[in-house]
């Protein structure tokens, strides 16, 4: 099932589509001899939430890591506003406005909440107080735990901290890798609501999720990866009602 389906459509409603912010073009990535991405194409337009779905090992995380410079593709291009950014190291790439919340959150365990957030603003000369306040407004629980060590937070709080920390770098595009992983449904819902809010405040979001239903309900568009290639793509609402998606990712009988 590696053929792109007929779900692909241009944005509806006659209004001109927002400009493309991030584009992945024919990405091929290898781990040794194993081909993890076999020519992935993906676009993210300004202001969108794009969901990247798929089973374990489909290449979702690899796609995200390639987009943020942690992995160099063997072939293909990563473009930000039409400019190639593949080959730029991740520590330089943050300056281009890509914020990556990694799989497993990657909170610095022996730094306080405040220090973790300050690390998010490492690329700037000084920490913007307004950004810090914004994070504490979005996540009041972090505000209550400013001086607590990252490693002592609950899983949900760590996820909030990881997202908040990425926001401290003022990203234009936020890459989120499985924010729902290992969290209770209520917490997941909370986090998704906040991601939606962040998006409405002007940040473009590329969201990797196994939790397909929840991700598609929030997303504008979606891509389904299967064994390193895009198997389906389209409007989130259409993917959500597509019988194949429902069978494979929403746990319904076909």
């Amino acid at each position: 099932m590696s053929v792109t389906t007929d779900l692909k459509k241009e944005p509806q409603g006659g209004e001109p589509a927002a400009p493309v912010v991030l584009e992945l073009r024919d990405l091929r990535v290898f781990y040794g001899a194993i081909e993890a991405l076999k020519g992935v194409n993906l676009t993210v337009r300004r202001g969108e939430v794009v969901a990247l779905l798929g089973a374990n090992g489909a290449g979702k995380t690899t796609t995200l890591r390639t987009a943020s410079g942690m992995i160099a593709p063997r072939e293909g291009q990563v473009l930000l506003h039409g400019e190639r950014i593949d080959g730029i190291k991740s520590h330089d790439l943050v300056r281009f406005g890509i914020g990556h919340v990694p799989e497993g959150r990657g909170v610095f365990p022996r730094m306080t909440v405040r220090e973790n957030l300050q690390m998010g603003a490492y690329r700037f000369k000084s920490v913007d107080k307004a950004d810090m306040d914004r994070v504490f407004t979005l996540f009041p629980r972090l505000g209550e735990r400013k001086s607590q060590l990252g490693g002592t937070l609950s899983g949900g709080e760590q996820q909030m901290l990881a997202i908040g920390r990425a926001l401290m770098g003022k990203p234009e595009v936020l890459l989120l890798d499985e924010p729902s992983m290992g969290l209770a449904p209520l917490i997941v819902q909370q986090i998704f609501e906040i991601v939606k809010e962040i998006n409405e405040q002007g940040t473009t979001v590329l969201l990797v999720e196994q939790n397909a239903a929840q991700a598609l309900r929030m997303a504008d568009r979606g891509y389904v990866l299967e064994t390193g290639a895009v198997a389906m793509e389209g409007e989130a609402s259409e993917l959500l009602s597509d019988p194949r998606v429902r069978a494979a990712y929403l746990g319904e009988g076909a």
């Binding site: 943020s68 943050v94 990657g106 610095f108 490492y122």
Partner: peptide, 23 residues
């Protein structure tokens, strides 16, 4: 700030580089 870069790399070099730390 130099010290926070050192501590970040000590705790998680990969994530530190995502924050813009040149390892």
């Amino acid at each position: 700030k130099m010290g926070s870069g050192i501590r970040a790399v000590a705790q998680d070099p990969e994530v530190a580089s995502l924050m813009g730390v040149d390892i």
